[in-house]
Design a protein around this nucleic acid. Structure first.
Lengths: 193, 193
DNA sequence: AATCGTATCTTGCCATTGACAAGATGCCGC
DNA sequence: GCGGCATCTTGTCAATGGCAAGATACGATT
């Protein structure tokens, strides 16, 4: 069968092995090509070389698959932010860079209508990401009442998230260039002074 | 026929009258209920009381309908921003308020994979919105080189857009409350000082 | 090592949808 | 009236999501 000769050392051994992981991998490719809305489970099955009903066994339905992807994404984001360290500007740049480099994950993560927001694994992953976000803001010098920290955190998250979203939507003028980290740094500096 | 007794004075006279407008109206309702991705042309036809192929005549396909909605949305946004005046903070609050009050429009406008980005009417509407955006930022005192105005515009747009997007995604903590204008003002003040 | 239980995957099926083609309906100008 | 045309309907097809039932292979138990 064709499904046995996938060759590469990573995603092979479909039958008993990691079809689940393979499906998540091809799902990322498919989402980068057509977006999360136009994702087709049957297309994923074809890409993975399995029958059209195989994905359902591992994820139940499309929402199940996207839930798994979202959880994976929040974990990855938490990792990325933690690695960026305590500097607010660096964390913001890392946030934008994550959105661009892991576009498929990012586009699923903030579309709760596509997945099951009450999934346990997802919720804990979101918690990790949230904690990593706040860690970056905590390093800011407090400029007033302690409640200002919350406001600052929201402001920082908003500007990074907004820039990333506009970048991905192709809404920004060409003049900002094609280097997201650089462009993000210039904009985020406006707030993180 | 049932399609003639829509009663209200606004969207009546389907056969020769404004099926197009009626379809756009029910599309907004449907999008608020299930999101733009799960929008079904046949469902719109049922809501409007026409046959399943009627929408295709006015919009060609689903992308055509969403293109019309996006153009309508950008025009509405331009209007809203212009009405908000020259104050940057007020413009930002108006932007967020627009996103929440016209959620369906907003959710389509920034998903170019759903519509035809090269549509003429859409492009001009985008131009109007972009101009209105820049007008709000131009009132800011310049704090350096003139190129800073571009940066400031991007920063302001990013923070307002990010806050709006996170609000719509339900990603913000409950503690921000349920009054978008108020919450947005508190966050945007952090930048527009 | 043989067997049983179970996870994994396949085949078959049905309702829904988007898109297209062809036909019906009714308005409007001549 | 009458013809042309925009508008809307009916009919159809391929693709999809999801479900049910069956096949297959692994692993644990004896």
């Amino acid at each position: 069968m064709a499904r046995y000769d996938s060759g590469m050392t990573e995603t092979r051994a479909y039958h008993h092995g990691d079809l689940r992981r393979a499906l998540l991998a091809v799902a990322l490719e498919a989402i980068e090509e057509v977006g999360p809305a136009a994702l087709s489970l049957r297309d994923l099955a074809r890409r993975a070389g399995v029958s059209h009903a195989a994905p359902a066994h591992h994820f139940g339905d499309k929402a199940g698959l996207l839930t798994a992807l979202a959880a994976q994404g929040f974990d990855l984001l938490a990792q990325t932010l933690t690695a960026a360290g305590d500097d607010l500007l660096a964390a913001g740049v890392a946030y934008v860079d994550f959105a661009v480099r892991h576009r498929a994950h990012f586009e699923v993560m903030f579309r709760p209508e596509f997945y099951r927001a009450d999934d346990a694994e997802l919720v804990t992953a979101q918690g990790r990401a949230r904690a990593a976000l706040r860690a970056g803001v905590a390093a800011l010098p407090t400029r007033g009442a302690p409640s200002d920290t919350d406001r600052d955190a929201l402001a920082a998250w908003s500007i990074a998230h907004g820039f990333a979203t506009l970048w991905l939507a192709g809404a920004l003028p060409d003049r900002v260039g094609d280097e997201p980290r650089e462009a993000a740094r210039a904009v985020l500096r406006r707030l993180a002074t």
